[in-house]
């Protein structure tokens, strides 16, 4: 009997270590596979933006003790720029929307409609990213291309970067909008949850002093929930940084061409890994795969850092689409 118990406890201990082991093994392997690229490119991986797979039919060259296809060069500049710009645009769009929805749910919406509204916003988190991509290609891109982007170029063209050739709806704006739909439920649920923690008597007290609902929302509840709001926004940012399929479908997935305006096609680190891995298989030296691994390593470090920071600030127990209660 006691032996059984010991065995059971050992089993639960081993199973509890699975997440630790998986994450460690994953990090170690990604680092291991990216070492050839780290040795080949060194710092220029971070300072250049050209991603050139090289000539697979020419004899490979040896640089810094590793073999690489002749003429190959790998720089993450363009992808990093795309990841940061699409994610930041997503935050710029989704933060005010999430804040106003949370305020509406907390202050203006009738009690009965609240749960329904929160569930509706949560549905955004459940839509698969390829479905977002499909909708982006079929609905969002044509609308952007025909109406919104020409209007922006014409009327907002005085802002640097807002005037430019419009090739198609795909690019920064489409990616930012789609990403914002994906992260609005995350930010909203964190803000709504933290609004609920505002003590009722404090709220009533401020109301009785004559404050309007907007003032209570803007000054009191925001004050109480500042930390969770920032944390929730960082969690949303973390999700946006790593999003792959939807961005791959609506970003234009461009390589080696720097954007000239906000209407240009773009690409992100996650989308680049998904779209370039296919052709990387044909590199006999394996350098293309190593470079993509390094890209994955950098992406992993960035999104882990953002998420950890967000979790630290917002507090634990925030999961996509699941209320912690």
């Amino acid at each position: 009997m006691r032996l059984h118990n010991k065995f059971f406890n050992l089993l639960t201990f081993i199973m509890a270590l699975v997440p630790v082991a998986v994450l460690s093994v994953m990090a170690i392997f990604i680092l291991y596979y990216s070492t050839p690229s780290i040795r080949y490119e060194g710092l220029s991986f971070f300072t250049t933006y050209l991603w050139n797979p090289g000539f697979e039919f020419k004899p490979p060259v040896s640089v810094n003790g590793v073999l690489a296809p002749a003429g190959s060069s790998f720089g993450l500049g363009l992808f990093l720029l795309g990841t940061l710009s699409t994610s930041l645009l997503a935050i710029v769009i989704s933060f005010p929307i999430s804040f106003l929805i949370s305020l509406n749910v907390e202050s203006y919406l009738p009690e009965k409609a609240r749960k329904f509204t929160v569930s509706m916003i949560e549905l955004f988190a459940g839509i698969p990213s390829v479905v977002y991509g499909l909708w982006g290609i079929l609905v969002l891109e044509p609308v952007l291309f025909r109406y919104i982007e020409p209007w922006m170029s014409k009327n907002l063209g005085f802002i640097p970067g807002f005037r430019g050739e419009i090739y198609s709806g795909a690019g920064l704006i489409a990616s930012g909008i789609i990403l914002s739909f994906m992260i609005i439920p995350i930010i909203t649920s964190v803000i709504v949850n933290s609004f609920e923690t505002v003590p009722k008597d404090v709220k009533e007290g401020v109301f009785s002093l004559g404050a309007t609902k907007w003032e209570v929302g803007r000054y009191l509840m925001t004050g109480y929930s500042r930390a969770s709001t920032i944390g929730g926004t960082l969690l949303g940012l973390g999700r946006a940084l790593g999003e792959t399929m939807a961005v791959l479908m609506v970003s234009g997935a461009i390589v080696n061409t720097l954007p000239t305006s906000i209407y240009s096609a773009t690409n992100t680190m996650a989308a680049a890994i998904a779209s370039l891995l296919d052709s990387a298989f044909f590199d006999p030296t394996g350098m293309n795969i190593a470079a993509l691994s390094e890209l994955a390593l950098v992406l992993m470090i960035i999104s882990l850092a953002v998420n950890l920071l967000g979790r630290q600030i917002a507090g634990r127990g925030v999961l996509r689409g699941y209320e912690n209660d």
Binding site: P19, R239, A270, L277, L299, L304, N307, L308, L319, R320
Partner: peptide, 17 residues
């Protein structure tokens, strides 16, 4: 918690390699 924030394509790349 950290594992939830690993981008899906990184898991995919790890799975492939």
């Amino acid at each position: 918690d950290i594992l939830t924030s690993v981008p899906s394509i990184v898991i995919g790349l790890f799975g492939y390699l």
